[in-house]
Each structure stands twice: as C-alpha cells, then as structure tokens.
Amino acid sequence: MTFDTPLVSIIVPIYNAELYLSECLSSIASQTYQNIEVILINDGSTDRSEEIAENICKKDQRFRLINQTNFGVAAARQLGLKNTNGEFVIHCDSDDLMAERAIEYLYKSITDNGSDIAVGAYTGQCSLGDQFITHHTCDKYEFIRNILTGKYHSSLWNKLIRTELCRDISFDKSINYMEDKLFLSKVLKKDGVEISIINENVYYYRLVASSYTNNISSDSISSSIEVTDKVCNIFQDIYSNEFIAHIKNKNKVMVLLNSQKTQRNIFPESTKYLLEDKNIPLKHKLVILSDLLHMSYPIKLYKFLNSTMSKKVI
C-alpha cells in the first residue's frame, strides 16, 4: 500500500496494561491518517499485554512489537525512538486513547503553519468526569514558560514532532517520572523550532492510579527533583533568576506535600526568592519555612487538613 503523505511513527510503551491496551491500540488503528507505523515496546509486562500486542500485529502490518526486559518507561521510549522510520513522531500511553482524527489534525497544523511541533487539545478523564483542555496561541518562549509552570501538560502524547529534532537527543534511562518533560525541554531548546497549536481534541488522557505517571513513589519524587534541576539548567540562559527560582520552589513544595522528604537541601539557592515570589501561595511558603525551621507539626497539620478537605463530597 502506498500513501501520498509522510510516514508518522507512533511509539507506545507498554507495561502491564492489559485492562486498557486493546482499546488503546484500536484507537490508533482507527486513525483517519493511515500512513502510520506503530512501535509497541513491551517493557517486561507480566500480564497479557504481550499477547494483546501480538494479536494486533498479526491483524495490522503497520504495528510492530519489540519486547525488552523491564527497564522502565524512559528506556522503552528511547528504544521506540531508535526504531522509528517516520518523518514525524508522537507517543501514546498504553492506558489512554487517541482521538480518531488526531494525526490528521496535527499533521495538517504542521503543513498549514510550517511548524516543527503541533500541539493539540485533549480530554482529561477521571472518576469526577471529563475536562477538555485547550491551549492559547503563543510564541515558543511563552509556550515553554507555560510548560515549566505546569499550565500546559509536558506530555508527548498530544504533540506531533519532526523526527529529525529528536535524533541527536535521548531519554535519560535512569528517569522514569517526568522523563517526557525533560525530553521535550531538550527539543524546545533547539534554535528555530516553530510551534503550532490547535484546539481540536486529539487525545483522551485517563487518570489511572496504577499507570507510570500516577505512581508517586520515592523514586518518582527523586526523579522530579532531578528533572527540575536539569530543566532549569537547560533554560537558565533564557529566563530570569527569579523565574527559575519559582520553578525550583514549586518543586520544593511538591516534595514536601507528597513525601516524607525534607526540602532543606533541595535547591537552597532558590529559598532566598521565596518570600518575594507572588506565584507561590502563602500557605506553601509557610510550609517551606516550617521545614527550614525543623517544625514538623505545621506540615503534618497542613497535610491532614488538605487530605480531609479533598475527601469531602460536595
């Protein structure tokens, strides 16, 4: 079969995703943009994921399965990237869904705008209902700022990227949480990268407690610190010291509120900017200051109250 459109590579890292994998792969197979290759990286799954992946490969020659020992999602993404043949590349998580016209919309945005990266809207799905997330048109540096502050999701699943931008960079195989944010930052730092944004829905992002991204472990906390440090180093020549300190202080708050770790030795250089940072809430400033003063009770109280409030049904 021949196509008059460029080949698009879709990388799917898989780990114990049997509950969602068939539906995920069906959503990819149903793309209106048909000139795709789908690289399935089975990261040492112990459930039926490999069997499910093998079945679709038998039915659809555009799908290809590669098995590896359980090295983590970053290694899986890197192996997928190494095996891509497409002019463009995008990632899809194995517990999510691609909208039927996702690649069509994203590719059209690139051709219409002469861009290198097309970013699409997506639907976040959780037990409380769906939320449609859009992006505002902005220049590259505003886009990066929104990624760094968390206003925009740093995932790779709603971003179609020219593969040539990815060839000389790689995923850090030791980082399996926020690995996509670090990789995307490396891509965005390149000179001359043009971004286009569309507000058509391209993806359904499921908030699944057992997924890679929602498993907040001690290793994940450590990865978040490492990624924040590396990302801030990447962009320190672009943004002000105050802004970089803000990103680091946000990470300090996350570490305190989501683990038993102290933040006293994490980015100590950013603490001097804390009180003047208008974008860090007062309650979070107090949490950081309490930890700096070795006052554990206010932190425990805040966590307890925050947990109690989140459990209330309104």
Results as ranks from 00 to 15, higher is better:
Thr2Arg: 13
Asp4Trp: 00
Leu7Lys: 15
Ile10Pro: 02
Val12Ile: 15
Ala17Ile: 07
Ser22Leu: 05
Cys24His: 02
Tyr33Arg: 07
Tyr33Ala: 05
Val38Cys: 06
Leu40Arg: 03
Ile41Tyr: 03
Asn42His: 04
Arg48Pro: 02
Glu50Arg: 07
Glu51Val: 03
Ala53His: 03
Ala53Gln: 02
Glu54Arg: 00
Asn55Cys: 06
Gln61Tyr: 02
Arg62Ala: 01
Asn67Phe: 02
Asn67Glu: 05
Val73Arg: 01
Val73Tyr: 00
Leu79His: 06
Leu79Val: 11
Leu81Trp: 04
Glu87Lys: 10
Val89Ser: 08
Val89Asp: 00
Ile90Leu: 11
His91Met: 12
Cys92Trp: 01
Ser94Thr: 08
Asp95Ser: 10
Leu97His: 05
Leu97Thr: 06
Glu100Gln: 15
Glu100Met: 12
Arg101Glu: 11
Arg101Thr: 10
Ala102Gly: 09
Ile103Met: 03
Tyr105Thr: 09
Thr111Lys: 06
Thr111Cys: 02
Ser115Cys: 10
Asp116Tyr: 03
Asp116Glu: 08
Ala118Arg: 09
Gly120Ala: 13
Thr123Lys: 15
Leu128Tyr: 15
Ile133Tyr: 08
His136Gln: 15
Glu142Asn: 13
Arg145Glu: 13
Lys151Gly: 03
His153Leu: 10
Ser154Tyr: 03
Ser155Met: 11
Arg162Pro: 03
Thr163Ile: 09
Cys166Met: 14
Arg167Phe: 10
Arg167His: 12
Arg167Thr: 11
Ile169Thr: 07
Ile169Ala: 04
Ile169Lys: 04
Ser170Lys: 10
Phe171Glu: 03
Ser174Gln: 08
Asn176Ala: 01
Asn176Tyr: 00
Tyr177Val: 01
Met178Trp: 02
Leu182Tyr: 07
Ser185Trp: 00
Val187Tyr: 02
Val187Gly: 06
Leu188Glu: 02
Asp191Ile: 11
Ile195Pro: 06
Ile195Phe: 09
Glu200Ser: 15
Asn201Thr: 14
Tyr204Lys: 07
Tyr205Asn: 09
Thr213Tyr: 02
Ile216His: 01
Asp219Lys: 08
Ser220Leu: 08
Ile221Ser: 04
Ile225Asp: 05
Cys232Ala: 09
Gln236Met: 14
Asp237Thr: 15
Asp237Asn: 15
Ile238Leu: 12
His246Ala: 10
Lys248Glu: 13
Lys248Cys: 13
Asn249Gln: 14
Val255Cys: 05
Asn258Thr: 07
Lys261Glu: 06
Ile266Lys: 05
Glu269Gln: 14
Ser270His: 08
Lys272Tyr: 10
Glu276Asn: 14
Asn279Met: 09
Leu282Ile: 14
His284Met: 11
His284Tyr: 14
Val287Phe: 05
Val287Gly: 05
Val287Leu: 14
Ile288Ala: 05
Leu293Ile: 13
Leu293Val: 13
His294Glu: 13
Tyr297Ser: 13
Tyr297Phe: 14
Ile299His: 08
Ile299Cys: 09
Tyr302Asn: 05
Thr308Tyr: 07
Lys311Ser: 12
Lys311Asn: 10
Ile314Tyr: 11
